[in-house]
């Protein structure tokens, strides 16, 4: 896992210098590309992390004993999954400051909020599937030992449910990295934005957009590798060994 993380870091730092070796129109714009890639990665990491927390909270709401909590969680998931991400990104950036005066957020923060809310709804379903997959015997054994509600969840149910949810969470995370390109719409200078700007300046769409796509491919591949390493680490039942 550490090796995969190091590989990701090395790739990011080496990306600029590597690209600068390339001929026109990539080489002279290498630093912009690597800056954009870094912004894309930060968008993904922030939204991905917040999205996991949101997903767990919403999954808990969905499986709650309380009717109100179930309704709130279902409403959130219904709205987010039923509307386009682009609309959500625009809404957070343009409409929320009108609805809540003073909630003027910079473009990056707005994008993080919209992306987190979006991936959170999808994560909620992944985590819920994990929670439902835990056999009843596990919670009964924990309760029979005298463990309280909180410990039954934290020590017994959640660790196992999270592990089951992990492959789905990873695929949501990789999808999020690609979806973060929609932050372009509110002016965040992320990878797609950079690629399109340079394309427009140089009138050379093929090398610029191909480079953009390749960088995404590199990032998602590394990300998948990193997640595989995590999955392997938590695979205590040895199902994959």
């Amino acid at each position: 896992m550490a090796a995969a993380a190091v590989l990701l870091l090395v790739t990011l730092t080496a990306l600029g210098p590597l690209l600068s070796w390339l001929p026109e129109p990539i080489g002279p714009n290498a630093s912009q590309f690597s800056e954009g890639a870094r912004t894309t990665l930060w968008l993904t990491l922030w939204s991905g992390t917040i999205g996991v927390v949101l997903g767990v909270v919403a999954a808990l709401g969905r499986t709650s004993r309380h009717w109100v909590l179930r309704q709130i969680a279902s409403f959130y998931i219904w709205v987010i999954r039923g509307t386009p991400l682009l609309v959500q990104v625009l809404f957070v950036y343009f409409a929320v400051p009108v609805l809540i005066p003073g909630a003027d957020l910079p473009d990056f923060a707005s994008a993080v909020i919209a992306l987190s809310l979006n991936v959170g709804a999808y994560n909620a379903e992944a985590v819920r599937a994990g929670l439902l997959a835990i056999p009843r015997g596990q919670t009964e054994a924990a309760r029979a030992l005298g463990l309280g509600r909180r410990h039954v969840f934290m020590d017994v149910v959640f660790p196992q449910a999270f592990k089951i949810s992990l492959p789905a969470l990873v695929s949501n995370f990789v999808a999020l990295m690609k979806d973060s390109s929609l932050a372009y719409a509110i002016g965040v200078v992320e990878l797609t934005n950079v690629g399109n700007r340079i394309q427009a300046q140089t009138f050379q769409p093929i090398p610029t957009l191909a480079t953009t796509a390749c960088i995404y491919l590199l990032l998602t591949t590394l990300m998948t590798q990193f997640s595989n390493a995590i999955e392997h680490k938590v695979d205590v039942e040895g199902r994959q060994k």
Binding site: A141, L145, G146, L147, P159, Q160, V236
Partner: peptide, 29 residues
């Protein structure tokens, strides 16, 4: 905590080692 129970399907916590299975309740409760 005064009544121990053993189930047909064992219901050991599959993500924990044998030792952690046995120590979980004394430590938490």
């Amino acid at each position: 905590s005064e009544v121990g129970m053993v189930f047909q399907q064992f219901n050991l916590f599959s993500h924990l080692t044998v030792l952690d299975n046995v120590t979980l309740a004394p430590r938490r409760v």
